[in-house]
């Protein structure tokens, strides 16, 4: 295990199935540490499926099956000896629709710490909650109402609460599944700004429908598309620095997609 190598995650011949349907085929990409990697592509090409493979959330769908490997710090997270619960603590996830727990703002963050075995004093817990909220750029807005329900916040605040909840348990990677698609433009920009802060300490992989968002926030971009129209399996057709994808992509299909001439 080399914690300081350039790449934090690597997929090897990754095939993701739902039953007999090969949803994502033959993905071989390497995710760089402390960078933001965007996954873009048309609907139904397997972006979210690929994202969920990174923290084994796919397995929650009963028919899901995985072939190949995903190396996390050079260790295969699909090895039988690995418990998905541990994988998910270290590779956190933020969802499309803000989903805070219907508990207090404080509890939303404290709960993750407790179940992951935090055994400190109340004041230590207070400090960790504050730190997480500060890191998620939410502290100033909620510090006087920590006992109010997380559901009482606005959509953008709820999403930042979800980010705070995720970073509180100190993951190494944060997976974001269209984290701003349910938010207004200002709340979206706030999340994007926050991502730039977070990348100093975390590696971020974001799935987005919004190409401008991918262009704005990410360092690397993976372009996904159906391989062909017969098997309807999605795959990564181009993976490069974001500036290359958006100024001079190699693949004609990427070009057509990013210029809006797809379909």
């Amino acid at each position: 295990m080399n914690e300081n190598s350039e790449y934090i995650l690597e997929t090897r011949n990754l095939n993701l199935y739902y039953g007999n349907f090969l949803a994502v085929a033959d993905v071989n990409i390497k995710i760089r540490r402390h960078q933001i990697t965007a996954i873009i592509g048309p609907s139904g090409c397997g972006k979210s499926t690929l994202l969920r493979a990174f923290n084994r959330m796919n397995e929650l769908v009963p028919t899901a099956r995985t072939e190949g490997e995903i190396l996390f710090n050079n260790e295969n997270i699909y090895d039988p000896s690995i418990d998905p619960v541990e994988v998910r603590r270290r590779i956190g996830m933020v969802f499309q629709k803000p989903n805070p727990f219907p508990k207090s703002i404080y509890e939303n963050i404290a709960w993750g710490l407790r179940i992951n075995g935090f055994r400190g004093s109340k004041s230590e817990l207070d400090d960790l909650v504050e730190k997480a909220l500060r890191d998620a750029a939410l502290w100033d807005e909620v510090k006087d109402k920590l006992d109010q329900s997380g559901l009482s916040l606005s959509g953008g605040q709820q999403q930042r609460l979800c980010i705070a909840r995720t970073i509180a348990v100190r993951p190494e990677v944060i997976l974001m599944d269209e984290p701003a698609s349910a938010l207004d433009p200002i709340a979206t920009l706030r999340i994007e700004e926050l991502m730039q802060e977070l990348k100093k300490n975390y590696t971020i992989i974001i799935v987005t429908h919004n190409m401008q968002q991918a262009a704005r926030v990410s360092d690397y971009t993976a372009m996904m598309m159906l391989r062909n129209h017969e098997d309807r399996s999605g795959t990564v057709i181009e993976f490069d620095r974001t500036e290359v994808i958006f100024t001079n992509p190699r693949d004609k299909r990427t070009q057509d997609y990013v210029t809006g001439r797809f379909g």
Partner: peptide, 23 residues
């Protein structure tokens, strides 16, 4: 109870039992 709540808990590294019990 929305599935998204279960996913949120599981994504934090909770076991299924912890998710069921606390949420």
């Amino acid at each position: 109870v929305p599935r998204s709540i279960r996913l949120a808990a599981l994504a934090l590294g909770a076991s299924q039992w912890e998710t069921a019990r606390d949420h």
